[in-house]
Every structure is written in C-alpha cells, then in structure tokens.
C-alpha cells in the first residue's frame, strides 16, 4: 500500500514496459515527454486533502446477499478446516511429563550446571537466550523489526499527516510543571534504561526490558516538551539507521549458525570473570543491540499511532 510517486508514469519500470510493447521509438518519445512534463509542485505547509477514492457502482441487493452468503460459507469452512488440523495435531503430541519428551532431556541440566562457566553470564537466562540460543533471539528481534516496518508502511503512507507537527485532536499545550520535572526525570529514566540493558548478564533485565524503559523515557520527553524538541534528536532517519545497524550487528554476529550448525564457532572473545560488566563474551553487546531496536520501535510505534509520523 505504498503511495505512488509523482513521476510513476516515467519511472524505469513503466519505461521498460513501454519499450517492450512498442519498441525504441516509443521509448524516445516517452523520454522527451517526461522532460517536458511540469516539475512536481513543492508541497505546501497546509495539510493536503485525502486522496479521492474511485467511485464504485452500487451492487444490486440480490447480488450483495449472494456474495455475503458465499463469504460466510467460506469463512466457516476455513475456520473448521484450521480447527480440525490443530485438534488432530494436538492429539498426536506426546503425553504430558513423559520421560522421552524433548522438554525433559539432558539439555536443561547442562545449561544449569555448566552455563556459568561456558557463557560467563551470572544471569543464566541471559546466557541461554543470547549465547546457547542466540539464533532464536535473532528471530525474535526480526519479528519486532518486521512488525515495526509493517506499521510504518501502513500508517505513514496515509499521506496527509506526514511530517505532522500539530497535536492530534485538541490537546492542551504542555504544562510548565510537567516540563520542569521532566527536565530532571527524562535523563534519569534514560540512564536507568541503559543500566538495565548493560546489566542484562548480571541481574534480571537485559535488552528487551531495558529497551522498553528507554522507550518510555522518550515517550515522556515527547509528551512534556513537544514533538519539535524531540525531533531534534530522534527523527524517522534516526529510527531507520539505529534499527538497521543494531539488527545488522546482531545478525552478522550470530548468522554463521546457518553454516556451522547449532553449536556455533568457538568464540575468541573470552567469557571473562563472571560478575564483571565486561564479561560473558558477546552478551553485553548483543543486549545493547536488542535494547536499541526495542527502544526505537516503542517510540516509533507511539509516534506513528498518535500523530502519523515518528
């Protein structure tokens, strides 16, 4: 559902189709026509109107009822089919608590007994999700990124609110008391979020929760000081760059598992002394990457839902 560009008729794809259909002369004629075409107007400051949808003919009553019956029949059939498949699958699962189930094998004991010396992380959960099972967490971060991309595509493309600076609805201007307190609180909250992210391997926390705290700090900043001040350091470009680089760093660190299998390579970054902040190999850096992605996503989704742009 992306918006069409203004020069879509003369874009490379349309030119190629035109050449395919009509030959070289047609392409030359199209290029000359595109040079003569008027330049797209500069966008004005006032918000443009919503693009008009093409008018549709109303359906007749009988046809509408028939379409509705077909729609209901297909929906019921689809739901019954999916339910049947799921029930059949659930029926053939092994019984709960059986001795040969994959949940009860020797892997969990190995994680608990040797987790500390193999990963170096005092927080065994962080050691598991970012070292033993780092590949799964890469998938989760990708899901987060994909969700943010989908929301941005759908909501930012509505056009007439792009770059919006006005407050949605008729909200009151920000309170001076809130601003004075936020001048003290927003840096503290961001600092606390960084503390939770960086201490992920030493105490409960890590990338996901610390990123959420930092996102909450940014939301408070946007509410207290207004969107213009926040846009001085967090624009859509920042969102794009930070998400891209953080996720690429994570992917490049752990994607070799595609080729070497589940055990991965022996890491040349040593595990270090457990309990120090620069221990546990790659885990602090991966936590940082995940935390940045989560922070940008939280604030970006908030901005897009509230005013149509980050």
């Amino acid at each position: 559902m992306a918006r069409l560009r203004d020069d879509w008729e003369h874009s490379p794809w349309r030119n190629f189709l035109r050449w395919l259909r009509e030959g070289d002369d047609a392409l030359d004629r199209a290029m000359i026509a595109s040079l003569d075409a008027p330049a797209p107007e500069l966008r004005e400051e006032t918000a443009p109107e919503a693009p008009a949808l093409p008018a549709e003919e109303p359906l007749s009553e009988k046809r509408r009822r028939r379409l509705r019956a077909i729609y209901i029949a297909l929906s019921v059939l689809l739901c019954v089919g999916i339910i049947g498949v799921l029930v059949r699958t659930a029926g053939s699962l092994p019984s709960f608590g059986g001795a040969e189930n994959p949940a009860n094998n020797e892997v969990s004991r190995r994680y608990i007994e040797q987790g500390l010396q193999e990963t170096g992380a005092v927080n065994l959960v962080a050691g598991m999700i970012l070292d033993y099972r780092a590949f799964d967490t890469l998938g989760e971060s990708n899901v987060l990124f994909a969700a943010a991309c989908a929301v941005m595509l759908l909501l930012r493309a509505l056009g007439w609110r792009e770059g919006g600076t006005e407050l949605p609805g008729h909200e009151p201007h920000s309170d001076i008391i809130l601003q004075k307190i936020s001048m003290v609180l927003v840096p503290l909250i961001l600092l606390y979020g960084m503390y939770v992210i960086l201490n992920g391997h030493l105490s409960p926390g890590g990338g996901f929760s610390g990123g959420a705290v930092m996102g909450a700090g940014l939301i408070l900043c946007a509410n207290a000081f207004g969107i213009e001040v926040t846009r001085r350091f967090f624009t859509f470009r920042t969102f794009q760059l930070v998400s891209l680089f953080a996720l690429s760093f994570y992917a490049l660190s752990k994607a070799y598992s595609f080729f070497t299998g589940a055990n991965g390579l022996h890491s040349f970054i040593t595990a270090g002394t457990p309990g120090r902040i620069f221990s546990a190999g790659l885990i602090p850096y991966l936590n940082l990457a995940v935390g940045l992605v989560v922070c940008c996503t939280m604030y970006g989704l908030y901005g897009v839902f509230r005013r149509g742009d980050v």
Binding site: H170, S203, P204
Partner: peptide, 28 residues
C-alpha cells in the same frame, strides 16, 4: 527493587498520557 522502580516510572507515564488524552477527547 529494580522492578519496583520501573513500575513507578510506568504508572507516572500512564497518568501523564491518560490525562492528556482525556482532556483532548473532551475538548475535541
């Protein structure tokens, strides 16, 4: 106690946003 700190922040943020949105809806 770290979790308690986060919860304090979140409840304050919730009050800030709820009042803002409620006032906006009424004035709208």
């Amino acid at each position: 106690v770290d979790i308690a700190m986060i919860y304090t922040m979140l409840s304050f943020l919730a009050v800030v946003l709820l009042t803002r949105i409620a006032m906006g809806v009424w004035r709208g």
